[in-house]
Design a protein around this nucleic acid. Sequence first.
DNA 1: CTGAAAGCGCTTACAG
DNA 2: CTGAAAGCGCTTACAG
Lengths: 349, 349
Amino acid sequence: MDKSPPETINTEARRASHGAVTLADVATLARVAPITVSRALNSPDSVSETLRSRIRTAVDQLGYVPNRMAGALASAKTKVIPVIVPSLSNVVFIEVIEGVQETLTAHGYQLLLGTTDYNLEREAELVSALLGWAPPGVMIAGLRHLPRTNTILKNAGLPVVEMMEYGARCIDMNVGLSHVRAGMEMAEHLLSRGYRKIGFVGTRLRDDYRARQRYDGMHRRLLESKIASDMLFDYPGGGSQQLGWNALGDILKSNPELDALFFASDEMAVGAILRAQREGIAIPGRIAIAGFNGLPVSTLVTPSLTTIISPRKLMGHTAAEMLLARIAGGSPAARRVNVGLELAAREST
Amino acid sequence: MDKSPPETINTEARRASHGAVTLADVATLARVAPITVSRALNSPDSVSETLRSRIRTAVDQLGYVPNRMAGALASAKTKVIPVIVPSLSNVVFIEVIEGVQETLTAHGYQLLLGTTDYNLEREAELVSALLGWAPPGVMIAGLRHLPRTNTILKNAGLPVVEMMEYGARCIDMNVGLSHVRAGMEMAEHLLSRGYRKIGFVGTRLRDDYRARQRYDGMHRRLLESKIASDMLFDYPGGGSQQLGWNALGDILKSNPELDALFFASDEMAVGAILRAQREGIAIPGRIAIAGFNGLPVSTLVTPSLTTIISPRKLMGHTAAEMLLARIAGGSPAARRVNVGLELAAREST
DNA sequence: CTGAAAGCGCTTACAG
DNA sequence: CTGAAAGCGCTTACAG
């Protein structure tokens, strides 16, 4: 096949063009009006069998692919939905995106992906840029944005779903869980198992305020108890297993009085457990370890990891369904959904 | 702020409209022609200081966001690039996407994400649908597509990068590594360490032909050696750690004669190691374990995992750079890039 | 440096 | 069931 576009069709064009086959080309070949081709493609039932098959032949022969931008511009309807998350390095966002993608795809929508790297300025720019695609709705991680971002989204007058965390105030719709509550539940659990000096280990906590909320929840509950205390460790450099591995060594040396560590993610907690295995450190004898997310690996490590399970795919599905309900003109079952969480008490504590 | 769009502007419109502020609105407020607003935004230097600041004020006051679809339609230029991968469940694709995203974003491009779930029919549909956005280029995982997909992509006359695997024939450009070679190198390694009865463990191998290529490479090398043999295990249900965990138990029972297992991914291999830890199975004494990818966790488990390291982010960066070079009208440094691989011999073998 | 006109490739709204 | 006209919101190409 020839790789160059069919230039001949446009030799006389005065303007830039995609050089691609258009509706008009199909119409000419099928000897009908362009609008009839449009109908044959978008609402086949409204076109006679005869013309429909003639048009189909022409479409196939020319390899016609409708220009979505022209269609969207004319009809003021798009099926592309921006999904904005902080990062792809965190499994949690991936699984939410997967859930969103599954639901969107099933309804013929496409996903336009944006990542902010936890930077709210960048988030604001991204929101502006993506609104330029005149999307029918927007999905965004988190409830905290710059005032500017909130204003833009509100003024856009579109359905918006804020995901990942559940809170009292949202722009439009909200699906998530309470991270403060997660922290409180873990504190409760650690207290009940007799731990009294607890470290919280996270990374980039200035940006990752959801992790900080888990710390806040834990901190509050421990204070209340009057029998336990905590310390906060904020490591630079991404929430990986390597970080958990490093943290365990550092902390045992610098703060030997601690008897439990609550990590910001299962990945970090697993890293700590692997380090303990390697060095023969007893878990939970010497120190207890807990995580957050409920990744599958949490049941496979030895000792198995105490963690808080969050329904990530469900969050994605629910968020997408709510958005689609609103786009379809209806209203979702609820405007705010708390997907909940579940503490899994296992061997590591 | 009022959540509804500024209806008043369009009360007399005969057609659907986004109800959004347009270039014309800004032009009216700034008392200039629309084209001048367009210039002030796209090539500020070509507009006088006076008008430029008047326009800027109007833009801010109205909260104007340019409609990208109208712009793209008129100029035949878009900055959205479709990226098509089989799945998001596999870290490998995520890291490639991250690399792609970093490079695209740095050049002002956006990423339109499509997943095929390893289904070539679905891939073909996705390619058609995404070409409807008249993108300046396409990035797609894999060298194997339906003939129809190849034809569509070739006829589109756009820059196309096929990623993940390196091979002799590509549609346009290619960045990847040789999976056959990876399998051969692992076979070589296992032979050199004295293993003679080797199992290859994968999942959905009918669809994941790159994993099957690694098996083929291993198989070929073992046959050549005349001293070793292999078996192929294809488990249903996603390449998770859980799968590796299950596989280790099954295989030790059903095929106790095997002395080494080469897993299709590090995740699966790590699952097997965790199972062995739990049950006190000696690795590599009772059975050797090897993986593929070189995930960070491979160095953290005990025993550390022998694996093949692939430069995933580099692949993403390189692929995006090649595409952008072609979009900019130049030609990339090379049309085909083999990013290579590196066998890391560790404790598990 | 600034603008009036035409056009990008579709769909809406109105006729027949 | 089929079509001619107008328009979606921009930018190109041509003038001044």
